[in-house]
């Protein structure tokens, strides 16, 4: 009898059926086949690309994007113990956090889920992150991209503070900076000296993929 676990995993993700997706991934794990684990990771990556496309096309809404990300997160958590040697090559590192004074993390967490599934190594600094902490993480991890989330207009000035800290330490030219958050805009990106503004998580991850693609 053919093993249709991977097809079932994809259906689970695209039909937003957590139970089916987890049942499928447990079948994959039970097989103990490293190659199948890698294929399962690829299925998650491809499925989230479909989810992102549906969101950008207006076919799916934020709650569906969030729930698909949650299913992917649970699936990846289940697969991760078997992924030591089976993972896809990284597209590079993303350091991400919500700026100081701001505790909102919904948008940031969606980016984290989607970026991980897209093959980025993600260093999530959490919320209320100071400029010094952002700069230290950039120095330590040498990311290709720094993502900053900022929901509150009252904390918008923190974005410029982080970029200033990167400049002072000679780190700004070594990476791309993308900002996102309800109160922000392309104007805000220009004002603070970021490379781009992402109106939503999927667009943000798409930008990162383009930046990480070989020239």
């Amino acid at each position: 009898m053919p093993d249709d676990s991977l097809a079932q995993l994809q259906r689970g993700l695209l039909d937003l059926d957590m139970e089916a997706a987890l049942a499928a991934v447990h079948n994959v794990i039970a097989g103990g086949n490293q190659a199948r684990v890698k294929e399962a990771v690829d299925v998650v990556t491809r499925s989230l690309e479909v989810v992102g496309k549906r969101f950008q096309d207006g076919e799916w809404y934020l709650a569906e994007l969030v729930y698909a990300g949650e299913i992917a997160k649970d699936v990846m958590n289940a697969l991760s113990p078997l992924m030591q040697s089976g993972g896809s090559p990284s597209r590079g590192t993303l350091v991400i956090g919500t700026v100081a004074g701001d505790l909102h993390d919904l948008g940031k967490n969606i980016v984290v889920n989607f970026a991980r599934s897209a093959g980025f190594a993600v260093v999530d600094l959490g919320v209320d992150v100071s400029a010094q902490k952002f700069a230290a993480a950039v120095r330590e991890h040498g990311p290709a991209v720094l993502g900053m989330s900022c929901l509150l207009t009252s904390t918008e000035s923190q974005l410029a503070g982080v970029i200033d800290a990167l400049k002072t330490q000679g780190l700004r030219d070594k990476l791309k900076v993308v900002i996102g958050g309800a109160a922000l805009s392309e104007r805000a990106a220009r004002d603070v000296g970021a490379d781009a503004f992402a109106p939503d998580a999927v667009t943000g991850v798409d930008m990162m993929k383009k930046w990480s693609a070989p020239a």
């Binding site: 207006g58 799916w60 809404y61 934020l62 709650a63 569906e64 309800a182 109106p199 939503d200």
Partner: peptide
Amino acid sequence: GQKTGPLLRPEL
């Protein structure tokens, strides 16, 4: 709503 559309599908 959020920046690009409703948080939930309008039918929902």
